[in-house]
């Protein structure tokens, strides 16, 4: 399965989804003009990945800022991972990174953890 690599821009986060290593990364700022256009390939990639998922899939999310529609799609991404966890029976861990002192972003991670029921770890990144 092909990797999904997208370079980040001022409006979109960088994406590095690697099926071979089971390491997925989403980082940067997410305020795309068309969230569907940006996030749909990620959801489709995850749909494919569900069938070939490794025993352990790790996703690192390090977002500086995201808009409301992105928050919906981030939830969709995490729900796909929950499917891998529940239906395919594979382990999924989420590393939620946030800037030093950005308590709002940490709380947002906690909200996602509550809703998805996935296992989250929190990392405060030094500036």
């Amino acid at each position: 399965m092909k990797e999904l690599v997208l370079n980040g821009t001022k409006q979109t986060p960088s994406v590095n989804f690697n099926a071979a290593s089971g390491m997925l990364e989403l980082s940067g700022r997410s305020i795309p003009e068309n969230s569907f256009e940006f996030y749909n390939p990620l959801i489709e990639w995850l749909n494919e990945y569900t069938a070939v998922a490794l025993d352990l899939t790790k996703i690192k999310v390090y977002l500086e800022y995201f808009n409301t529609s992105s928050s919906k799609y981030i939830l969709e991404v995490l729900k796909k991972l929950k499917e891998i966890n529940e239906i395919a029976g594979k382990e999924v861990s989420v590393e939620w990174c946030y800037d030093e002192g950005d308590d709002e972003m940490m709380e947002t991670g906690e909200d996602y953890e509550d809703v998805t029921g996935l296992q989250f770890t929190y990392t405060e990144m030094e500036e």
């Binding site: 800022y65 995201f66 808009n67 409301t68 928050s71 919906k72 939830l75 709002e104 709380e107 947002t108 909200d111 996602y112 809703v115």
Partner: peptide, 17 residues
């Protein structure tokens, strides 16, 4: 409903930020 609750909380937090 879960989504609405989550997105509202996140939006409020982002607005505050």
């Amino acid at each position: 409903l879960d989504q609405v609750k989550l997105i509202t909380r996140i939006s409020d937090r982002l607005q505050r930020k």
